[in-house]
Amino acid sequence: MATERASRQSRVAKLPPRERILDAAEELFSREGIKAVGVQAIADRAATTKMALYRHFATKDALVEEWLRIVAADYTSAFDRLGTAHPDDPRAQILGIARFIADGLPEISHRGCPFINSIAELPDRTHPARQLIEAHKAGQARRLADLCTRAGLSDPDDAAAEITFVLEGAQVSAQNRSVERAGERLMGIVEAILDRRPGRPAVRRP
């Protein structure tokens, strides 16, 4: 643990100030929550000053929003990578997304899902970070529904909704440790949904 911490500190020290601030925010927000972490604590963790932090981020809310934008981009990249790896196999893409979530559950069991944690602390739906989360989730649902359509699943919107419930539920279950082998169960349920809703794969037109 000490070696890992020293390695991280060495890596972070080489980052430009903006990236150090984001790295510090990610660590503190994930560990302690948005409301509990002040700007001074982030600046101290990033080995910089509040004045320097505000040069990069006008407000703490702006920093929260940018942190969540980076988190969302990681999920979007997973969809993109799977689309490149399996361009003509939407079923493989859906299972790949499920595997991506399943593989991330051990970390979520320790730190919690950043979106779930942040939503709980952002009750105001006009908050930019809250709107970013909702827009990200809506976009993810659309991509999943499109994959279900291309896979030829009967009633693809319902199939996508079922899969979304499973993906989201698995993350909550991992966070509160209410279900054992959550990742394994997640994969089994998603496969069962795909097998239970057979249909004719959509034809991709040139």
Rank of each mutant, 00 (worst) to 15 (best):
M1P: 07
A2R: 13
T3Q: 15
Q9I: 13
R11Q: 11
V12R: 12
P17F: 03
A24G: 12
A25D: 09
E26I: 13
K35G: 14
V37H: 00
G38M: 04
A46E: 04
K50V: 12
M51I: 15
L53I: 11
Y54D: 10
F57P: 00
T59F: 08
K60L: 06
K60H: 05
K60M: 10
D61C: 10
A62M: 08
E66F: 08
I70P: 08
V71R: 13
A72L: 12
Y75M: 14
Y75C: 15
T76Q: 15
L82K: 00
A85S: 11
A85I: 11
D88E: 09
Q93V: 09
I94F: 05
G96C: 06
I101M: 10
A102R: 01
A102I: 11
I108Y: 02
R111G: 15
G112E: 01
C113V: 04
P114D: 05
N117R: 10
S118K: 03
E121W: 05
H127W: 01
H127A: 04
P128L: 05
P128T: 00
A129K: 00
L132D: 04
I133N: 03
A135D: 13
K137F: 15
Q140I: 14
A141E: 03
R143I: 07
R143N: 13
D146L: 09
L147K: 00
G152M: 06
S154I: 15
D158N: 13
A159V: 06
A160R: 00
A161V: 14
E162W: 11
V166A: 06
L167S: 03
L167Y: 04
G169W: 02
Q171Y: 01
V172G: 04
V172I: 12
S173Y: 06
S173I: 09
G183N: 03
L186C: 05
M187S: 09
G188K: 14
I189L: 06
A192L: 03
I193H: 01
P198E: 07
P206H: 12
